[in-house]
């Protein structure tokens, strides 16, 4: 492909237009409030970013394969509740408790995947039910109360939620997790055989199956990966704030899906972009943070967030139409 053509297709790509909008948004917020780019505020944004961002990586792969998962927010809440309860009330070793949390997430993802692929119920219905089951379980085992605060620093806490300073910026190790997992996801989707399969399954499942691609197995593993990433994000969050609550992560599923589609991944499958998802995660984080600084009243946040997401989707749709015409 000639360089000029490659460049123009990059500019027309959805992740690129999202990126431009991100830059514009950042500029607007920076001008509107000088504190937006202050070390403290950037550190704040970077502390939150990985938690939803990590889930969004899994969701991107899942959406690319043509499925999605509404139970991620509930898993985000349940995993740390189970782990911390085991340690605090059951006297279990933290390593063992984390193992149990991992197995739990794998089981939830596997059940989602098996029902979707083997019984053939849409992932919307299956994972919506799972959301209720998982959230309900978290509420029941805690009787609805947050756990008592976590007071056991140690290897795993440092590994997932340790913090360090670079100049006047304060970063958490979770940022490394996000960066590492992002690079891995980019590799998988664009360069690995598995990514070819994922895109093909989402684009035309029957075609992929006819070529011998194990579509069901790939989907089941993607459901598992998404669940595990949601649990990991939940642990990171709980360790960072030293507390687990049964209602943590409520509504995250929609926020994560918004990040992914705002980045340019198609809700209908086949077309996924991890770079776009990273841009989308940054964008939603910046919006949530920026509109506070700009002085939008707290109760009006979601109006703005919703409108900006809608505007992004309209833009993608128009670009898509344009690309199809040319």
């Amino acid at each position: 492909m000639p360089v000029g053509k490659r460049r123009s297709s990059l500019i027309r790509s959805p992740q690129f237009s999202s990126f431009i909008i991100l830059v514009v948004l950042l500029a607007v917020f920076a001008v509107a409030d000088a504190n937006f780019l202050s070390p403290l505020n950037i550190s704040n944004m970077m502390a939150f970013l990985p938690e939803l961002g990590i889930i969004a990586l899994g969701m991107t792969l899942l959406l690319t394969a043509g499925e999605f998962d509404l139970s991620v927010g509930a898993v985000f809440g349940l995993a740390p509740v189970v782990v911390m309860l085991l340690v605090q009330n059951g006297g279990v070793d933290i390593g063992v408790a984390l193992m149990a949390g991992l197995v739990l997430c794998i089981a939830i993802g596997a059940i989602n995947g098996l029902i979707v692929t083997k019984i053939g119920i849409s992932s919307f219905l299956v994972t919506l039910s799972m959301l209720l089951v998982v959230r309900g379980a978290a509420l029941y085992i805690t009787q609805g109360f947050p756990l008592k605060s976590w007071d056991q620093p140690g290897f795993f806490v440092t590994l997932l939620a340790g913090s360090f300073n670079i100049g006047s910026f304060r970063f958490y190790t979770s940022l490394w997790w996000f960066i590492g997992l992002s690079l891995f996801a980019i590799y998988i989707l664009r360069y690995a055989k598995l990514g070819n399969w994922i895109s093909a399954i989402g684009s035309n499942r029957n075609a992929a199956v006819a070529r011998g691609v194990p579509a069901d197995a790939v989907k089941i593993w993607l459901f598992i990966a998404t669940s595990v990433l949601a649990g990991l994000a939940g642990m990171i969050s709980a360790f960072r704030i030293s507390a687990a609550s049964p209602v943590a992560g409520t509504g995250y599923e929609l926020e994560v899906i918004a990040m992914v589609v705002v980045g340019g991944t198609a809700l209908t499958g086949g077309r996924g972009t991890i770079l776009g998802t990273i841009v989308g995660a940054l964008m939603l984080r910046a919006i949530r943070n920026g509109i506070v600084l700009v002085g939008v009243p707290g109760l009006a946040y979601n109006i703005f967030v919703g409108l900006i997401i809608l505007a992004m989707l309209i833009l993608h749709a128009l670009l898509q139409k344009n690309a199809a015409r040319s």
């Binding site: 895109s199 029957n206 198609a266 086949g270």
Partner: peptide, 8 residues
């Protein structure tokens, strides 16, 4: 209709 993946 089912032999190719259009997004690839």
């Amino acid at each position: 209709d089912t032999s190719l993946a259009p997004d690839l």
